[in-house]
Write a protein that binds this DNA or RNA. Structure first.
Lengths: 240, 240
DNA sequence: CGCGTTCTTGACTGCTTTCAAAGATGGTGG
DNA sequence: CCACCATCTTTGAAAGCAGTCAAGAACGCG
């Protein structure tokens, strides 16, 4: 189980992702490695950050998945974003930041403090990596809005799976055409603005079209190119 | 026309908004005032920022409205966010930023360069105001996602109008219960993930329920409290 | 092996879209 | 000052995508 979530390479997901965003110096790597010695564990369904409460400080998701969600008071839930290993939570530049959404552990989550980027050290790639990471997050937000506002169920699921693949690949967690995906159909519904029933029917349609196999916590996209064309998917590239 | 869009107070929308976000020093105000001497004008339907192209630098919307949008290649359009006077565009901390969405002028738009916040001047409120502004923008994104994913048409329109009121009020552009709103129903549809036809029907329902009057480029919310309760609206307050 | 969660499926309802066309509005030029 | 045109608003009828309700099957954990 934990093996499944861990990166296949010997490098940590965070190192994989951050150095993909910006070249890291030896000193950056040392700081990251050191930070990863100071781990915190959170059980599934427990909150890492709670809406309206102060954010303690930026942390790296070393292992496990989480999601950020907002509620409608009558009980409806909307997932804003999924957080996968290697990504950061609680990043905020201003003083006394307060969370705008609740971040909850989906699986058992391991985090460590995000290593500080020396603001005066121009050679540091960490600061740049964080900045690019923030820009990426904004891009994912925009795409999620587009997904929810202008795509049907079939397109939403496909588009999201393709994005998820790219995000996991960035952390070294997706290589061939399958990857771990611990969301239940209920959660996928809350993410994609659908009911779990309709998510199920949509996945069935995708399966019957030979596009994907979604098994227990695992997704296989049989023909990524075909799927990409179907929903006009283009990778996020606001970065490089 | 221009009168309608201009703030009613003698203070500029930007000054009103930024000083609402964080107390500004005399020096901050001087810098802002100076920046507002260097105006650029953009005609309606012209792009201020184009997706995939480099961002030249942060600018303040002195007057006029704009919107950020993302397209689905087949022609569908999703508006990510509306930008009102006093708000900023092109804010990005990293080097060589590239736009993740296109920002287009909705009306004639007047902008000026965002005055630089001296990073070494702790007493400067501008930097803090920008940081809070960025956090607010994130909060608006999250709410927009919730709106699109988990609300029906009636709730989407109401919820958005209430948020719009609060945003305009922050720039000193909404006082009583009516305000300027230059979006066509087509654009509201693109923003709220609906067709213009359905936006029209929804507004009709809101009107028949005695909640709003939407006239030419102008909205009047007759009973804000009632509307708030109806859609469980709570103002964004991740900030203070 | 048993129980709770998750996945599947069917039948029916309903919100939203689509298509079409008729008013209203505002700006422009004669 | 008014006719005219483009754009925007409004409405109706019909179709479709997604939601709701319900129940059985499969799965996974202890």
């Amino acid at each position: 189980m934990t093996m499944e979530l861990a990166p296949r390479s010997n490098r940590s997901a965070a190192l994989h992702r951050l150095s993909a965003l910006s070249p890291l110096t030896q000193e950056d790597r040392r700081r990251l490695h050191q930070a990863e010695g100071d781990l915190t564990f959170v059980q599934p369904h427990r909150d890492l950050i709670r809406e309206g409460e102060p954010i303690s400080g930026p942390r790296v998701i070393v292992d496990g998945w989480a999601y950020r969600a907002l509620l409608v008071p009558d009980g409806r839930r909307q997932i804003i974003d999924i957080v996968v290993p290697g990504e950061l939570i609680g990043m905020c530049t201003r003083r006394n930041p307060v969370a705008v959404a609740t971040t909850t552990a989906l699986t058992r989550v391991t985090t460590c403090p995000a290593p500080i980027a020396e603001s005066d050290d121009i050679s540091s790639g960490l600061k740049q990596a964080y900045a690019i990471g923030a820009a990426l997050e904004e891009a994912y937000f925009c795409r999620h809005i587009r997904r929810l506002g202008r795509m049907n169920a079939y397109e939403r699921v496909s588009d999201w799976l393709l994005e998820l693949y790219d995000r996991l690949a960035m952390s070294g967690l997706a290589h061939g055409d399958d990857f771990t995906m611990p969301l239940t159909q209920e959660l996928m519904g809350d993410l994609l603005g659908l009911t779990s029933v309709h998510v199920n029917r949509t996945i069935k349609a995708l399966r019957e079209d030979g596009l994907v196999t979604i098994g227990t916590k695992r997704v296989r996209i049989h023909n990524r190119e075909k799927m990409r064309r179907l929903v006009c998917y283009e990778p996020v590239k606001p970065v490089f």
